[in-house]
């Protein structure tokens, strides 16, 4: 096992976990969204890391270059980034609405006075 070869991944994992931690431990709705983004970006980095080929270049065909990095994860991550931003936009939209309805964006301050009034 090549510890050095995996070091890159470990850093990414630490990042992921920071994001994940923000998501589940914080009560502020915007902060949760940021955490979610950190989490996702870290996952993207993870994907991109795996696509790297030592000595390779960006996967744009050119004369005289033999080794390219793996383009497939790039494509996947392009898609995933878009999905991520879409999610963020929606989440923030919801946050704005929640703030309108409740006057707060702290999860534990959103309390319902009446029970089961639906």
């Amino acid at each position: 096992m090549d510890v050095l070869g995996l070091f890159n991944y470990w850093i990414v994992i630490v990042l992921m976990m920071i994001g994940f931690y923000i998501v589940i431990s914080h009560g502020n709705l915007v902060k949760k969204v940021v955490g979610l983004n950190v989490f996702q970006v870290s996952v993207f980095v993870f994907f991109i890391s795996m696509s790297k080929v030592r000595g390779g270049t960006a996967p744009i065909l050119e004369e005289g270059i033999e080794v390219y990095s793996n383009p497939l994860p790039h494509v996947l991550i392009l898609t995933a980034i878009v999905v991520g931003v879409a999610t963020t936009a929606l989440a923030l939209g919801l946050v704005v609405r929640i703030r309108d309805a409740y006057g707060t964006i702290e999860a534990d301050e959103i309390i319902e006075p009446e029970e089961d009034g639906a």
Binding site: V41, I48, T57, I60, H74, L78, I81, V82
Partner: peptide, 15 residues
């Protein structure tokens, strides 16, 4: 750095 220029472009614009 990891050769993913397209992704970098997008990340910069989006993130």
């Amino acid at each position: 750095v990891q050769d993913a220029v397209d992704v970098a472009f997008t990340e910069a614009a989006v993130g």
